[in-house]
């Protein structure tokens, strides 16, 4: 019976069906199932399948995003039960994510957030127009591993440098890995502001984040 439930959970992710994923998560809680097991044996199997299909060119970006959204919904439903049990989901790392101050372009940033969540990171998305102060304060509050910042304009990407400079000033630079992204971001810019990594797309961002946490 439980195996059948796990299969349905994986399928809800493959279908990108957030409503079904939520319902199955609730069913798991009511049935007294270990929420961690529901994630690792059920939902994550679906995420991995879609990721594999995507890598092979069989699945497309909307399917990947929908799977990510469904995964997010399932985890959100299971979280209170995990807290109750004192169980903590093993995450790859904590990421504070934002579009920098003065910039309201967030589709790329949100995609990165969805991909990181689906890959097993805990993401704190501060949305758009986030000030350096707000970003750093959040990183300290949640004890983040990575600060990830996006900018679409050459006029706002300077805020990425400002965050890094502020981290230096406050003696916090070594505590966080910093990754940046956005259309105007080049390798040259990354080295000029001494960021730790960058990617041109959301799929690459997940690999960079994994490398950064592995490097500790």
């Amino acid at each position: 019976m439980t195996d059948e439930l796990f299969k349905q959970m994986a399928q809800s992710i493959i279908d990108g069906d957030a409503d079904a994923a939520t319902q199955l998560a609730e069913q798991a809680i009511q049935g007294g199932l270990d929420p961690l097991e529901a994630i690792t044996k059920g939902f994550v199997v679906g995420v991995n399948f879609v990721g594999q299909q995507f890598a092979e060119g069989e699945a497309f970006l909307p399917e990947l995003v929908m799977a990510g959204e469904a995964m997010k919904a399932a985890v959100k439903t299971l979280e209170p039960e995990m807290m109750k049990r004192g169980a903590e989901r093993e995450v790859l790392g904590k990421v504070v994510l934002a579009t920098v101050e003065g910039d309201i372009h967030e589709i790329g940033k949100s995609l990165v957030g969805t991909m990181l969540t689906a890959a097993g990171f805990e993401v704190f998305d501060l949305g758009v127009d986030a000030s350096p102060h707000k970003i750093i304060a959040k990183a300290i509050e949640v004890n983040a591993d990575i600060i990830a910042m996006s900018a679409l304009l050459t006029t706002t990407m300077v805020k990425q440098r400002e965050v890094i400079d502020d981290l230096e000033k406050e003696g916090l630079r070594s505590r966080f890995k910093v990754m940046v992204g956005g259309a105007p971001i080049t390798r040259d810019w990354v080295s000029r502001i001494s960021a730790d990594g960058y990617s041109e797309d959301a799929i690459g961002a997940v690999n960079i984040a994994k490398q950064l946490v592995a490097a500790g």
Binding site: G16, A18, L61, P62, E63, V65, M66, E69, I107, S110, L111
Partner: peptide, 9 residues
């Protein structure tokens, strides 16, 4: 964004 809309799929 429209990425996770059923219509998109």
């Amino acid at each position: 964004n429209f990425l996770s809309q059923k219509h998109t799929r």
